Simulated scan of single mutants.
Amino acid sequence: MAKSIARRIEYLISDILQEKGIELLEVEYKKEHGDQMLRIYIDRDEGVDLNTCTIATRAVQDIIDQDNIDYDHLEVSSPGIDRLLKRDKDFIKHQGERIRIKTLKPLDGQKTFVGILLDTSNDVLKIEIDGNSRSIPRNIISQIRLHPEI
C-alpha cells in the first residue's frame, strides 16, 4: 500500500515541480518509529539548496494535503552525493562518474563493484574497474549508487 501511495504522490506533484525547474527523483512513504514519513527527493542542474527545498515544499504540501494523504513528517531534500541511480536517464546523466554496484548474487565471487560507469543497455551495465571494462547483468543488480571519491 505504501508504494501505491508513493506513486500517487509522484503523479500529483511531478508536474508542479517540473514547472519550477525542479526534478522529482523519488518519493518515499514509510513508517519510522511509529510515525508516517513522507520524503521527497529532488534535483536540479544547479544543485539543491535550502531555498530549492523551501520552494518545492511550498509547491507540493497543499496538493498532498488536499488529496488527504496522511503523514506525520514531510521532508524535501537532495538525494545526496551518493544518490541512488535507478532510471536509464540517471545512467546517461552520470556516465563517466564513479559508481558502486551491489548484486543479488555473487559474480565471480564478488557482490560489490566500484568503478566508472561506461555504458548501459537493457541487459548490462558496463563499468571500468582498474582500467578493465566489466559488464554486469542488470537482472542481478540490487542497487547502484554514485560513489564519489572524497
Rank of each mutant, 00 (worst) to 15 (best):
M37H: 11
H94N: 14
D108C: 01
N68S: 13
E97M: 05
P148I: 00
I99P: 05
H73G: 09
E149Y: 10
D45N: 15
A56D: 00
I144N: 11
D119T: 07
K126F: 08
V76N: 01
A2E: 15
L117P: 04
D130H: 06
E28Y: 05
T112A: 13
P79G: 06
L24E: 03
I99F: 06
D88I: 00
K30M: 11
D35H: 14
G131M: 00
I116Y: 12
G21H: 07
H94T: 02
K30W: 10
P137A: 10
P148T: 03
C53W: 00
L117A: 10
I136S: 14
E149M: 11
I140G: 02
P79F: 01
I69N: 11
P148M: 02
L125R: 10
D130Y: 01
S77P: 02
D130N: 09
D119A: 05
Y29F: 08
Q18K: 14
S4M: 10
L17I: 03
G80Q: 03
K126H: 13
S142Y: 05
G131K: 04
D70M: 13
L107E: 05
E10K: 08
N51L: 09
E19C: 06
Y29T: 04
D119C: 04
K30E: 14
S121C: 03
G96E: 12
P137G: 04
D119L: 00
D70L: 10
D35P: 06
N68K: 15
I140R: 01
N68A: 11
L38S: 06
I40V: 15
I101F: 02
I42F: 02
I140H: 00
V27R: 09
E23A: 13
D130G: 08
Q66D: 14
H94M: 06
D123G: 07
K86T: 02
I22F: 05
G21N: 11
R44K: 05
Q95M: 06
D70R: 12
H33R: 14
I22R: 09
E26G: 11
S4V: 00
R83L: 13
R87W: 09
D72F: 07
D90M: 06
K30V: 02
V114M: 09
D123Y: 14
Y29V: 01
E28Q: 14
L38M: 12
Q18L: 13
G131V: 00
D67Q: 08
T120W: 08
K86I: 05
D49C: 03
L118W: 07
S121Y: 01
Q110N: 07
V76I: 03
I150R: 13
K86H: 08
Q36Y: 04
R98P: 03
T120I: 12
G34M: 04
S14I: 01
R7W: 02
E75P: 05
D88K: 11
I16P: 03
D130R: 10
